[in-house]
Design a protein around this nucleic acid. Sequence first.
DNA 1: GCTTGACCTTGCCCCAGGGGCAACGTTCGA
DNA 2: TCGAACGTTGCCCCTGGGGCAAGGTCAAGC
Lengths: 238, 238
Amino acid sequence: MLTIGQLADYAGVTTKAVRHYHERGLLAEPGRDSSGYRRYDAQHALTLVKIRTLADAGMPLARVKDLLDADPDTFAAAIAEIDQDIRKRIAQLRRARAQLAQLRGGDRLFVSPEIADYLDELRELGVSERQVCLERDGWILMHAASPEDVSRWIAEKRRLLADPEFRTLYREHDAAYDWSPDDPRLPALAERTRTWAAGHHPSEAERVDNPTIARLAARTQAGASSPAWDRLARLIKS
Amino acid sequence: MLTIGQLADYAGVTTKAVRHYHERGLLAEPGRDSSGYRRYDAQHALTLVKIRTLADAGMPLARVKDLLDADPDTFAAAIAEIDQDIRKRIAQLRRARAQLAQLRGGDRLFVSPEIADYLDELRELGVSERQVCLERDGWILMHAASPEDVSRWIAEKRRLLADPEFRTLYREHDAAYDWSPDDPRLPALAERTRTWAAGHHPSEAERVDNPTIARLAARTQAGASSPAWDRLARLIKS
DNA sequence: GCTTGACCTTGCCCCAGGGGCAACGTTCGA
DNA sequence: TCGAACGTTGCCCCTGGGGCAAGGTCAAGC
């Protein structure tokens, strides 16, 4: 007859776990010897190994309990199900591993592939990393606030970037961030921007009156501006 | 600016989880709007996705917290470690799957390969499944109570089974379980057993005076006897 | 016989990672 | 204007045990 420690060692668990299984009704309480120690027999060892096998496979103890005295068909079905579950979990772990690797480089992890591609295009255009981050943050907010609009807006942005004049303006605005607010190039840039805006026929998509988006855009800009940008904004409005 | 629900949906978690991360200090509490609602920006979304990526990889939240503002080297090292861990867990799951499959057939799962082989030999000899179970339970107890003795005893048992007379006696004892206690074959079997025992030179191993084992054996037998076996035992002793 | 160390007993609180519910305030669209 | 859907805090609950306390017990060696 075995003590709780011997039984636990045999099954590769702690004595604590064995007592836990008693509490949860998974393992029958054995008889006690004269000193009150639990004394186990081989049947307990068999059951304990079964419990561990099922629990190691990720089955909750409550289900293990039901299953221990279920008929063979139920048992087999449960085994099959758990087996499927294990395969799913392996796949999940593989995915987690891949995600983890992404964490080290780039922002593909944080935005949809569509947006990530767009950001890469900006980079190829020579846009500063600061500006790319600003864009990324804007798209994250948009994606979170109204995901169904993202595709349309991305398409619109792409359409604009196809216009050489817009591309030039975009890059100059980007560069202007670091200029002095008194930089003589600012009035000229403002003028060119207004000219472009006047000649530019706003598309359907752009006129979408989504107040959420409008407020969102305003906030995003507000967070990260510079003296030169502030002046530029005033010059364009005036 | 996002509400907690939008942020949570974006990262694929529950609002409860987001609040949990605030409590644990993983995610900075954002400002509140006039009604007391939390209002999040893109930075929160970035951090939240990072948190989930690390947590999904099995990292405890406490470590995630430390890692979120660690230097890149520490971060990379931690990533590598977690990656190793994931691979280990995948291997573990695979093992669990294999064990699970074993659960459906035989008792290889419960005893060492050595003992399982021995039990299979008994089966080939035509020993009843009842007797094989009895043996199995005995070996489980021995393995749990004093694993270092198992190999020696198994070898001894094998040596005995090589003796044709012992094999015959073993099988007849097995069969006698179901006999009536008045069966006329019992006295003859007892006599043959005594003759064999007298002519049998007990080996070194057999005389090992392990009182634990002796008590153990006695208990095992006591649990599963039959009227015929009881009579047989009395006949042999007398 | 005595000590020492390893074992056993019960009981209680602790952890992650949230879920669920209460009881209430806010916002938004029809 | 009203109801649904969302937000707030706070509390207790779950799993699968770990850790520790405050003892009782057992076997070995001296």
